[in-house]
């Protein structure tokens, strides 16, 4: 006769079983398959498989295009994190004050609305806006006497244009998170600071930012992981071009696996990306722990 504790434990395992089956079927098994594929050459149709050891990794790591896509991805991440998290934080701080309710709601809605719209849809609209000779943005630039900006047609400009759209699209999400965190700063802390004579910049630097530091780090981590997986917006806006100027690691991975039909190199690049995400997240989580520890001291 099982004890109550054992029966509860069994029931608990049964409750989480469906979620684990889904996890196994759709996440863990494909990941293990990708790991296996990264050491093999496989025909998509016949499923003939040949083990090639580290050959796929050697091929990728010696392909300058792979490194180019890696640089592109990290450039995108750095700019997108600064834009989404940095600008998002600044706007959240600006909104975290006594503003008439209707205006506050309007501003929040204005910033959050792009988050709700389909990325594919807005990408097409931005593509039209960005058109060099026939786009709306350059039309207005010309009206004020400026020359055309090659938003999507210049290698040096295209990724920045992608970042602008990404920040416009996603910043609202981070604003809402920061606003919630800022409004969670204890009132007593703010009152005590006020009594001690602390004003705007000091309150921000000594109380608000330290208090929401874990949230900021969460947002940086979240934006970084999203940046590492960037695909759809670039696919629609530039398809990775001009040349490889905006091609991300994920686009390279998809191209190798499905355009070239080389599932092995596609899987190997996925493994390298997976490892990179793991390292980046570990570093950021380490920072969170470090800051939390310092905060407690």
């Amino acid at each position: 006769m099982a004890t109550l504790q054992q029966r509860e434990m069994r029931a608990g395992y049964l409750f989480i079983l469906p979620a684990y089956i889904i996890y196994l079927a759709f996440l863990l098994l494909p990941m293990l398959a990708a790991l296996g594929l990264s050491f093999a050459q496989m025909d998509r149709i016949s499923w003939d498989i040949e083990w090639v050891g580290f050959e796929n990794f050697e091929w990728i790591l010696s392909d300058p295009r792979f490194w180019k896509t890696f640089r592109n991805t990290f450039y995108f991440i750095s700019m997108a994190v600064i834009g989404n998290v940095g600008l998002g934080l600044l706007i959240a701080l600006a909104l975290d004050r006594a503003i008439p309710a209707p205006i506050l709601y309007l501003l929040r809605l204005a910033y959050f609305l792009p988050v709700l719209v389909s990325l594919a849809f807005v990408s097409f609209i931005w593509k039209f806006l960005y058109s060099t000779d026939l786009g709306v943005i350059n039309y207005f630039l010309r009206q004020v006497g400026l020359s055309n900006v090659p938003w999507l047609t210049s290698s040096s400009m295209a990724m920045f244009s992608v970042v602008i759209m990404d920040v416009w699209k996603n910043m609202g999400f981070f604003i809402i998170i920061f606003l919630a965190a800022l409004q969670g700063v204890p009132r007593r802390l703010m009152e005590a600071a006020s009594i001690d004579g602390a004003k705007g910049w000091t309150v921000l630097r000594r109380i608000k930012i330290p208090y929401i530091a874990p949230v900021i780090l969460f947002c940086i981590t979240y934006a970084t992981i999203g940046g590492l997986q960037v695909f759809d917006s670039i696919k629609i806006l530039t398809d990775g071009g001009p040349g490889d100027a905006t091609r991300s690691v994920v686009m390279y991975m998809v191209s190798e696996a499905f355009n070239v039909g080389d599932l092995g190199t596609g899987a190997a690049s996925a493994m390298i990306l997976f490892l990179t995400i793991g390292i980046v997240v570990a570093v950021q989580f380490g920072l969170v722990r470090l800051l939390s520890f310092k905060g407690r001291q």
């Binding site: 090659p150 047609t153 290698s155 398809d239 040349g243 100027a245 499905f258 355009n259 039909g261």
Partner: peptide, 22 residues
């Protein structure tokens, strides 16, 4: 028989050349 790959290569090079980058 590898049309997708050939198209991808062509598109990539034409995009940079025709905009005067290469």
């Amino acid at each position: 028989s590898n049309f997708a790959q050939v198209q991808e290569i062509s598109d990539r090079y034409l995009g940079t050349f025709l905009n005067g980058e290469v």
